[in-house]
């Protein structure tokens, strides 16, 4: 089993959000209060109970509104800063598939992973434990597709071997492959025809420089039994 990836093609996405529903269904996640922010985008943000969300981006093209649907979820970085920073090893990267997953039973809820994440993805459940997309590693290990990729009716989310998906997207003539090289190669790759910023994707994402040092510091704090305050983390990184 080589490195796995999700290939996202915003141009194929129709914004039906079956992925959001399938994700919630597989993970038994409760519904969340929705909010009218002027678009059809909902729930308002990723949360400990919403692992994947489709952004509804409105662009004006020749006087008409054009809708862009872009997936927002964990990017499963090749060099995940969250794994480097986690002081207790709750956040892990699967060496086989490259999936960044976590063990809630170890998590101490220090929220260092959110501070370290270049995409601001990690969220926390009601108990304060890490809760995010884990690319359905339980399904992948059993030879199944992640729930979102399986349900996607248009093929805007494709799951497979990372190398094959990249080759396929290139063969189809997409100009930009966001995530091919970024941060050691992302596990979620976007096939685009314009610059990533147009799709509200972070251009040249970088993990905070002091991530490794922060991880070491947090490890010492944990070893000494000193409670970690999130404000210390923020101050250290600023």
């Amino acid at each position: 089993m080589g490195r796995k990836a999700l290939l996202i093609t915003p141009e194929l996405c129709i914004g039906c959000r079956a992925c959001q529903v399938a994700c919630k269904s597989w993970n038994n996640l409760p519904a969340e209060k929705t909010k009218n922010n002027g678009t059809h985008e909902n729930p308002p943000d990723l949360s400990g109970y919403t692992y994947v969300k489709i952004r509804f981006i409105e662009k004006e093209v020749k006087g008409e509104v054009k809708w862009l649907f872009v997936r927002q979820s964990c990017m499963h970085c090749g060099e995940p800063a969250c794994v480097q920073v986690c002081p207790v090893g709750a956040m892990q990267k699967d060496p086989e598939t490259g999936i960044v997953f976590y063990d809630k039973s170890i998590c101490i809820g220090c929220q260092a992973c959110r501070s370290a994440c270049p995409f601001d993805v990690p969220r926390y459940d009601k108990e304060g434990k890490i809760s995010k997309c884990y690319m359905c590693i339980d399904r992948v290990k059993a030879g199944l597709e992640p729930a979102c990729a399986k349900t996607c009716p248009t093929g805007a989310i494709k799951f497979g071997e990372r190398d094959e998906l990249i080759a396929q997207a290139k063969a189809e003539g997409f100009k930009v492959l966001y995530g091919e090289k970024e941060l050691g190669g992302l596990g979620v790759i976007f096939a685009l025809n314009r610059e990533p910023a147009y799709y509200n994707l972070v251009e040249n994402p970088k993990a905070p420089e002091k991530v490794v040092a922060l991880g070491e510091m947090l490890k010492i704090l944990v070893a000494k039994g000193i409670p970690i305050n999130n404000s210390i983390i923020k101050e250290f990184l600023s």
């Binding site: 039906c16 529903v21 399938a22 269904s25 399986k150 349900t151 009716p153």
Partner: peptide, 13 residues
């Protein structure tokens, strides 16, 4: 459907 479902169908659980 070849395994695909829309959001309503995906919520059948």
């Amino acid at each position: 459907s070849r395994g695909k479902l829309c959001p309503k169908g995906a919520s059948l659980y």
